[in-house]
Amino acid sequence: MTPSLVVLTDFFAVTNRALSYAASLAVPLGAQLVLLHVRYDGRPVPEGYGGRHTPRGEQKTDQALLKLAAEQTIRTQVDVAEGLLPEALTEAIRRHHPLFMVLGRHSDSMESSELFASVVMDLLRHAPHPLLIVPTVGWDACPPRRLLLAVDGEPFSLADEDHQEVLSRLLHATQATLDVVHVTEEQVRPKEGVVLETVCANDLVSHFAESRLHVVYSSTVVGGVLEEAARQEADMLVVVARRHSLLGSLFHRSITAQLIQESAIPVLLLPAED
């Protein structure tokens, strides 16, 4: 079965950039693209595509999707769903079994950024599947060559066994390097083996050298992770999204949500059960 990447598309430039990024990753991964468009999900319709509740507007949207798919240089299919976004994604995952989903991050204004992070966190709650967030600007490397995995040093279990293969397949396909960052406020350096064991225990990679672990002392986890990403000149950040963070009553307190909002490079979220 040919693997796939499901790309949420709404025809805006930022999402088209996410589509271009997904297409560039699909080539080395040997994957096809699925353009997922969800009607009636509350997002605005681009000017010129008509009202979403009218048959003519829906017809124009369908035609635009087919045209967009035909313009891709790799095999691309279209999937149009109705209803709310989490339910539509859950169904798309069931049908297409994607390696991961791809979503473009919209405006960098504070209000839009917080709303976007809230939507992503809601998606991870209801459709726990690897999700790649592609920001509007701030990156130019594709496929990525330097990945940085952020871990907290505590044991975790990924939500699905298939998710364990995503990172290793991506590394193998792109020939990228992988480093690990662990941020701590403590002045006592943690044992490298203990921290890396949380990665190896989930079979995210087959072998890992302690020299690839970077311990950062910072007053904030988000600040430490982003500073290390800049120092490493990483072009993709990988984050294990823990369930206890996703269920927080105030999403902006979640480290995952903050990284979604503030990262200047694409972020691959791997949902964990705890």
Rank of each mutant, 00 (worst) to 15 (best):
V239D: 03
S249V: 11
V222P: 00
G193P: 02
L65V: 03
I260P: 02
S24M: 11
L68Y: 10
L213F: 05
A70S: 14
V221Y: 04
D160Y: 00
H126I: 00
H207Q: 14
L65I: 07
E210K: 13
L246P: 02
L147S: 03
P44R: 05
L167Y: 11
R189V: 10
L35E: 06
M236H: 06
V216E: 07
V195G: 06
Q261V: 05
G57E: 02
G224Q: 02
E233M: 10
R145C: 03
Q261M: 15
G30K: 04
K60L: 15
G248S: 09
N16G: 08
V137L: 10
A229G: 06
A209P: 01
T9S: 00
A26Q: 08
G50C: 01
E47S: 13
P128D: 07
R39H: 15
H97R: 15
R75C: 03
L29C: 08
A272W: 02
R95L: 15
L35F: 09
F11H: 02
S107L: 04
D41Y: 08
L132I: 01
Q59Y: 12
F12M: 05
C142H: 06
Y40W: 14
S157V: 14
G48Q: 09
V134M: 11
S249A: 12
H182V: 01
A92D: 11
T184R: 07
V6Y: 07
V34L: 10
R189E: 13
A23L: 12
L25F: 07
D235I: 01
Q59H: 13
A92P: 11
P128N: 08
D152K: 05
V119E: 13
V7H: 08
L89M: 15
G248C: 06
A70L: 07
L68H: 09
S118R: 14
L250Y: 06
E185R: 15
L131I: 08
V102L: 02
D235R: 10
H37I: 03
L29F: 12
G57W: 01
V34Y: 11
A127K: 07
E114R: 14
T15I: 03
Y40I: 01
H129W: 15
A23C: 12
R145W: 03
Q187T: 13
L115S: 08
F116P: 01
D203W: 13
A69L: 10
Y40G: 03
L35D: 04
